[in-house]
Design a protein around this nucleic acid. Structure first.
Lengths: 107, 107
DNA sequence: TATGTAAATAACAATATAGTTATATGGTTT
DNA sequence: AAACCATATAACTATATTGTTATTTACATA
């Protein structure tokens, strides 16, 4: 996965409230009004958090009547774990650096 | 791992420059002066990025003469992958919510 | 000791993030 | 249609992030 894209998804993950939301969704799907009393923040704040998670495709939404239920996208979470342990290989970039004489040798 | 702590480490990861630095360090240890020509940013900017990674224990530093070499802490990276797929269980929290009658049923 | 190079820190500016309250939108129900 | 409830969006504020240039610190060497 590209650095920019991976960084964007990691930014969506890098917040304790959003991590906790994901954790709750692992137990079961929730709607915004269920999440609000769990956190000490307003409804719009929760709404923006889930929206951020949705943009990163970490959750999906399903409207049921007046409620919007959010569910976790476990696949996406696995993808991130995989991407972290398989970052793009940049050995070629370092080889170029060596050709330009910009590397440091100090043994 | 606690949400707060995990979020802090994810914040350290959630930047394309820092991800690329980690990726480079996977090939071999580098010092700041080697990283600078690879990125279009100043030496202090690179210095702050590696410092951020160090605080998150994603890299370690070793001084060799006038250079400071940074190496990746692969173990830490694995820890994050593990933590993401094993977020704290909050089913108890949801059970409390149900007792308070704050859950939504809509089938 | 004086000079040079590498890296870190300080002070600052621009932008992004995460919260607030007020309001709009979507769907339900009387 | 009117009232109601859940959610999203708008406008705004405070703080965090990420970069800059200038300076300091650490080490090596002429």
């Amino acid at each position: 996965m590209e650095f920019e894209k991976l960084a964007d998804i990691l930014k969506a993950l890098a917040d304790p409230t959003r991590l906790k939301i994901l954790s709750l969704l692992r137990t079961r799907d929730c709607c915004v009004c269920e999440l609000v009393p769990i956190f000490n923040i307003s409804q719009p704040a929760i709404s923006k958090h889930v929206s951020r998670l949705k943009t990163a495709e970490l959750v999906r939404e399903t409207r049921k009547g007046q409620w919007v239920f959010y569910s976790i996208n476990e696949k996406r979470l696995d993808e991130i774990g995989y991407a972290l342990s398989n970052l793009p290989d940049l050995s070629e970039e370092l080889r170029k650096l060596e050709q330009q004489g910009l590397t440091v040798r100090c043994e």
